[in-house]
Design a protein around this nucleic acid. Structure first.
Length: 592
RNA sequence: GACCCGGUAGCUCAGCUGGAUAGAGCAACAGUUUUCUAAACUGUCGGUCACUGGUUCGAAUCCAGUCCGGGUCACCA
């Protein structure tokens, strides 16, 4: 039972015995006491006076006395208006630290056998990953770690949009102008190589449009009139017909892209247990359409398209299958969801996809629910807002700042530069130094993205955003390195062993309170699908530790007892920082 | 036009299932190192929580309306 639960249970029991009132745990408002008041935790009694039928002060007074008598952990209390400030005994806090330190699995909840499939990344194979994918991947990976810590059985999957006109555009440009070049021969990373041919396609098409006698004003329409587009379209038809040569070229193109993607995945530390390819799933979903028609949930319109009426749900009529019987985006997503249900029988199906697609996922979930599929209740769209530059949305054609690989190498470069500036790599081998640059650079980048609530847009200024001071990843990493530096000099056998001290310093108590909040952060992050809960938690923990570090000497503490206690406290803080950061997919260094 | 999501300090963000005097970081300014790592710590400066009204003992938080920004309302993905 957590500390909060203990207090709430006690309060419920006291209300029963003292006021003969049945209150729920939700009615008990429990906060950490604001630092300008004396106390550790505060119960707000205003909501409880209707049960006690006494004034706020009287109610708080009675509750405080009884908690002190019964709970065994409340040392003293004070009442200010309707606020009951509880102080726990220093002995209690030290026991609490021992409990936490003694439990290797503290903050990791037992496996609950509940299956989750988490889809993230979802790139197109005709261009490299951009900053949006970066937010997506970091969120997806972190969310998976958080769910695992909550006991879920998580399977991470990726879906590649590997077919359609876009990849054909790259293929045509390559066939026309590539002269047999390869990523190997040019030294260009595979996904960039293919992306460059996509750019080339657009350049050629634009040239053609300029020469067109009466080009349509609409850009897309104009492009369709070009010979290079017609070539790409023909290629798409050949692909769909299964033409061997086209399929072979297409595979080659995609393989180059996957090589490139895999490099980035590896560098970022993200992974997938299963890949889906649209080329294999795009025909799925027809069965569901038939099922919907049979159940009369879907209907065939006069023009032959199959649709579902979602107006009762506040949405619109939505077409699910083209009039010519071919699939669209939603068709295959319906099919893929069904497929995954059959494969995994999961309880939750999480899609990490940008908020542009909020409407799409509402339709997906509703349509499946209307078919009576109970498992569709477990569909959750983890919607996140776009990453924007200070001047607005990043456009792939405006400069290279939005490219994920460029961004990563830039942040690694900065990490190297700053680390050298500070002279922090004395005694490091070259390999160790490179690992450190990576740890710090990626730490800065990942933390920058994950500390923000997913549904809020991120304003990213390439020049200024990635910082290493203050509320940042490196600050937290640095705190860890400091702790490790102390522990290297301490007796490694007894890191968690100490005898209770008479009294604690305020910041020591505060630190133990925060160590005890880890579980809450892990729970909240899963419940809200929000890694920033963990990011903000670990920042506060690191901040408190740095305060402690300045106020309280550890190795040179006044007494041996104090020293042992502070070593244990430092050790546990280091563990919680490391665990928290791991939930964010961020490594912490031993030295920096 | 309808619907969805945002709007909190100069900037980037917490707080939002209602609770005490709205918190951090950056930036600016002033300090702290013969002591375990100064990527740190301490202090100062900085607020009409977009606006108006309502609900209540109490509103940044809930409700209604307005304004601003973004997104969606495709037989594109």
């Amino acid at each position: 039972m957590t500390l909060e639960e203990t207090l709430k249970q006690n309060t419920i029991a006291i209300f029963k015995s003292e006021f003969d009132a049945d209150i729920s745990a939700d009615a008990v408002t429990l906060n950490i006491t604001k630092k300008e008041h004396v106390g550790d935790y505060t119960i707000v009694v205003f909501p409880l006076i209707k049960f006690s039928k006494k004034s706020p002060e009287q109610t708080a007074e009675i509750l405080g006395n009884k908690l002190k008598e019964n709970s065994g952990i409340v040392g003293s209390f004070n009442v200010i208006k309707g606020f009951l400030n509880l102080s726990f005994t220093d002995a209690f806090w030290q026991t609490r630290l021992k409990d936490i330190a003694g439990n290797k699995n503290y903050g990791t909840f037992a496996a609950n056998k509940r299956k989750v499939v988490l889809e993230y990344c979802g790139p197109n194979t005709n261009k490299p990953l951009h900053i949006g994918h970066l937010r997506n991947m970091l969120l997806g990976f972190s969310m998976s770690e958080i769910l695992k810590a909550n006991g879920y059985d998580v399977t991470k999957v990726n879906i590649y949009n590997d077919r359609g006109i876009a990849i054909c555009k790259s293929m045509v440009a390559y066939k026309r102008y590539g002269k047999g070049a390869t990523p190997q021969s040019t030294g260009i990373k595979g996904d960039h190589f293919v992306g460059d041919w996509y750019v080339k396609f657009n350049e050629v098409a634009n040239e053609e449009i300029k020469a067109l006698p009466n080009a349509p004003a609409d850009k897309d329409e104009a492009q369709k009139a070009t010979s290079i587009f017609k070539e790409a379209h023909e290629m798409l038809l050949k692909w769909e017909a299964g033409d061997p040569e086209t399929i072979r070229d297409w595979k080659q193109m995609n393989d180059w892209v996957y090589e490139g993607f895999n490099e980035t995945f590896k560098l970022l530390g993200v992974d997938f247990q299963k890949d889906y390819h649209e080329s294999e799933t795009y025909k799925l979903g027809k069965d569901i359409i038939d099922e919907g028609l049979a159940k009369k949930v879907f209907y065939k319109r006069a023009d032959g398209a199959v649709a579902v009426d979602l107006t009762p749900d506040g949405l619109d009529e939505k077409v699910l299958l083209r009039g010519d019987g071919t699939a669209i985006y939603i068709t295959q997503d319906l099919g893929t969801a069904q497929l995954r249900h059959e494969e995994f029988n999961m309880e939750k199906m999480i899609y990490v996809v940008a908020n542009e697609q909020d409407y799409h996922f509402k339709v997906l979930k509703l349509a499946l629910q209307k078919l009576g599929k109970k498992w569709a209740d477990g569909i959750f769209h983890l919607s996140y807002a776009l990453v924007e530059s200070p001047t607005g949305r990043f456009k792939s054609r405006e400069g290279k700042t939005a490219d994920a690989d460029d961004l990563i190498s830039e942040v690694l470069r900065i990490a190297e530069e700053k680390t050298k500036e500070l002279g922090k790599i004395e005694g490091f081998t070259e390999d160790e130094a490179n690992v450190l640059y990576k740890t710090i650079g990626l730490g800065a980048l990942k933390y920058f993205v994950l500390r923000v609530n997913p549904y809020k847009k991120i304003i990213f200024n390439p020049e200024e955003s990635i910082d290493f001071h203050g509320h940042t990843g490196p600050f937290i990493q640095y705190t860890h390195a400091r702790i490790r530096a102390i522990l290297r000099k301490a007796d490694p056998a007894n890191l968690a062993d100490f005898k209770n001290l008479e009294t604690l310093v305020a910041v020591e108590r505060e630190l133990i309170i925060q160590l005890g909040e880890y579980e809450n952060a892990v729970l909240a992050a899963a419940e809200k699908y929000d890694p920033s809960e963990v990011a903000n938690y670990v920042y506060n923990l690191a901040r408190t530790y740095n305060k402690f570090y300045h106020e309280c000497p550890v190795l040179t503490a006044a007494t041996e007892g104090e020293k042992k206690f502070r070593i244990a406290l430092s050790n546990q803080t280091g563990i919680m920082i490391s665990k928290s950061m791991k939930l964010l997919g961020i490594d912490v260094p031993e030295k920096m």
